[in-house]
């Protein structure tokens, strides 16, 4: 039996931190650190999206748009506004949050999946602007990002970024888990079961949903900013519609409503294409097949399904 202080919340965060340290010990080359860094970054966006999908029961089909805003903020802030990288990143987060507020405020008053439609349009709009405003954004060929310098220390190398993004993810998961236990989180879970009942109990349904949507957008923008700083190059593909779908797939495969599931989903979708290169021309077919198999046999998502399986096995 686990000791009383080891709540599931603390166990998840501690487990992630342990994983971070353990992988660091076994990884043989920078390539592995790069893959892991990409997993942490995608996971950060997925954890945010999972809050929206798992808690508020809303889907965002344009989440990559927020990723794009974060990514282009660090690319364009220093270039056009003369800002340093970190203030630019901050500006990107604020911008993404404000945009989410603007879009979410009228729409989340309605019941149903109107947010999915609105975000779909929003994501495509962001992508369009990044693509066509060549003079500002560099257009479809992308744009370079300055190297991050923190108090005289030039941040370089996949290993360094592995730690930075890994710690950002641990913090992100911690915040997400705390949010689930907060009044907003409890309110959201209540309205997930029955919106009418929640409203009757005095919960401002629209406000709670809006809060979580804004938070999810900020998570995505942070992921985008980190991606741009890590790659030191961004293209509008960061905001691509298919990238939005990829994020939703990560959440669904990993297990909706589970922050750990979002991390696992991000890991699966990032590592699989690398592992499947041995299939050469059949790579995409095998990738699709694997995802279909996951959906058929682990219908609740990887983490909840396996957790249920373990709970059944346990005496």
């Amino acid at each position: 039996m686990a000791p009383a202080w080891l709540t599931p919340r603390r166990a998840t965060v501690a487990g992630l931190a342990l994983l971070l340290a353990a992988l660091w010990l076994v990884f043989p080359s920078g390539f592995y650190f790069r893959i892991a860094t990409l997993v942490w970054i995608s996971a950060l966006a997925a954890v945010g999206l999972n809050l929206l999908m798992g808690l508020a029961g809303q889907v965002s089909l344009g989440h990559a748009g927020f990723v794009g805003i974060g990514a282009y903020a660090v690319a364009l802030g220093p270039r056009h506004l003369g800002l340093d990288l970190l203030p630019s990143l901050g500006l990107g987060l604020v911008l993404a949050g404000l945009l989410a507020l603007l879009v979410g405020r009228p729409i989340l008053r309605l019941r149903g999946h109107y947010l999915a439609v609105a975000t779909l349009g929003l994501g495509i709009l962001v992508w369009l602007v990044l693509n066509s405003e060549v003079a500002i954004t560099g257009g479809p060929d992308g744009i370079q990002v300055q190297r991050l310098v923190l108090v005289g220390w030039r941040v370089a190398g996949a290993e360094t970024w592995y730690w930075i993004t890994g710690l950002a993810l641990v913090l992100g998961v911690l915040v997400a888990l705390n949010l689930e236990e907060s009044p907003t989180g409890r309110a959201l879970r209540a309205l997930h079961d029955s919106e009418v009942a929640a409203a009757v109990a005095g919960i401002d349904v629209a406000r709670a949903k809006l809060a979580v949507f804004v938070i999810a957008a900020v998570y995505a923008a942070l992921a985008g900013g980190l991606l741009a700083l890590f790659n030191r190059f961004v293209t509008p593909q960061a905001a691509d519609f298919l990238h939005s779908i990829e994020l939703v797939t990560m959440v669904v495969i990993g297990g909706m409503g589970s922050s750990l599931g979002a991390v696992v989903g991000a890991a699966v979708l990032t590592i699989l294409p690398q592992a499947l290169t041995v299939f050469h021309d059949y790579e995409h077919a095998v990738l699709g097949l694997t995802i279909i198999l996951f959906m058929i046999f682990l219908r609740q998502g990887i983490v909840p399904s396996l957790a249920a399986l373990l709970a059944r096995r346990a005496p």
């Binding site: 080359s29 790069r34 992308g142 790659n231 190059f233 293209t235 690398q274």
Partner: peptide
């Protein structure tokens, strides 16, 4: 095959060099 995606191309480039 990077599928036209710059981020994926970067990952494969790292793989070519390091692995």
């Amino acid at each position: 095959d990077d599928g036209g995606d710059a981020n994926r191309a970067r990952t494969f480039a790292t793989r070519l060099v390091e692995d």
